[in-house]
């Protein structure tokens, strides 16, 4: 397993329980430019990067009621980049003192025969989509602004269709569990993005 490197604590064989702190929001297509502009000013001095990813969500249904979900993601515009397998736990809203959604997370870089391996294990692909957008970084914070495309023909990533007229904005930090201070930084950063975009902790259960 690849240990997340951005941590101040020693990585010992993947026993560290990593958490993802997340804030979400969205902007309409026409205000994307100004948001990107703002982010370029706020974030670390790097060339702004775009990405084009293909994500597949796999389910393993066991005896339990809730299936086990894994997300496999690959970069479509960067050849040679490893695949990324991700497990995300149940999101916790937390109380008011914590300003971000927190969920357990396990990140693994894998080779490209991941899908075959998952299929062999008994996973079944639930859905897939293409994400295309911009990637920013400020310290340990990652800011992703992307649009989700529906795949019309299963397995064919060339024919896609935009899901909405807006872009999803995610501000995330992966940190060891219990480091709730990072959520303060995230809140401060989110404040600076207002009123272009309002980043909030959105409970996915409430949307269902």
């Amino acid at each position: 397993m690849e240990a997340p490197p951005v941590t101040m604590m020693p990585v010992t064989g993947g026993t560290i329980n990593m958490m993802e702190y997340l804030l979400q929001g969205s902007v309409l297509d026409h205000s994307l430019e100004s948001l990107i502009h703002r982010l370029r000013g706020l974030c670390d001095n790097m060339e702004p990067e775009t990405f084009l990813d293909h994500e597949m969500v796999f389910l393993l249904k066991g005896q339990q009621a809730s299936p086990f979900v894994l997300r496999a993601r690959r970069s479509m515009d960067r050849a040679g980049a490893p695949w990324h397998l991700r497990y995300l736990g149940q999101p916790e809203m937390g109380d008011k003192n914590r300003h971000a959604l927190v969920r357990n997370c396990v990140d693994i870089a894998t080779s490209e025969n991941l899908t075959d391996f998952l299929m062999e294990m008994g996973f079944r692909m639930d859905h897939e989509f293409v994400a295309k957008g911009h990637l920013f970084r400020k310290g340990i914070m990652k800011i992703v602004v992307y649009k989700i495309f529906r795949i019309l023909v299963p397995g064919n990533t060339d024919s896609t269709e935009a899901l909405s007229l807006s872009y999803l904005v995610e501000l995330s930090v992966v940190a060891p569990a219990g480091q709730d201070m990072v959520s303060d930084d995230m809140r401060n950063f989110a404040e600076q993005l207002k009123p272009l975009v309002h980043l909030e902790k959105i409970d996915p259960k409430r949307l269902m």
Partner: peptide, 17 residues
């Protein structure tokens, strides 16, 4: 890349797979 992956040195990401 892909965007969901954590930050880190490329060498560390590549060395495993």
């Amino acid at each position: 890349h892909p965007a969901s992956a954590p930050f880190g040195h490329k060498r560390m990401r590549l060395s495993g797979p």
